[in-house]
């Protein structure tokens, strides 16, 4: 299935200017699986989201369906076409993306 990462402004230069990138993951994949797929498809983006140990960086937030899941990527299952929003924790983005309108269950 496909899931989509919506990228904060500073990340887009590392994805060829795209404001969102799609990755393929197996059915039932978690956010960690999606980040692993992001590392394969867009390593320059992924290394800015996670550190050397695979943890979401301290000042980066990842939302799924409007919920902050940065600390539970292994436990967060995704449905097809899920949209994951990556934002700087406090500031730094070129654009604030509304996450409320994309809420769904499961993410």
């Amino acid at each position: 299935m496909k899931v989509v990462f919506e990228l904060a402004g500073p990340l887009r230069q590392h994805a060829g200017g795209a404001d969102a990138v799609e990755v393929d993951v197996p059915d039932g994949a978690t956010v960690t699986d999606a980040l692993d797929a992001l590392a394969r498809a867009h390593p320059a983006v992924e290394r800015r989201v996670r550190d050397d140990e695979g943890r979401v960086r301290r000042h980066v937030n990842v939302f799924a369906g409007g919920e902050l899941i940065r600390d539970a990527p292994d436990a967060t299952a995704l449905c097809p076409d899920a949209r994951l929003v990556v934002l700087p924790a406090v500031s730094g983005g070129a654009e604030v993306v509304s996450v409320k309108k994309r809420a769904q269950r499961p993410f």
Partner: peptide
Amino acid sequence: WFVGSMSFHWG
């Protein structure tokens, strides 16, 4: 020239 830097957000 080499430049090592750090973004508080992106590492």
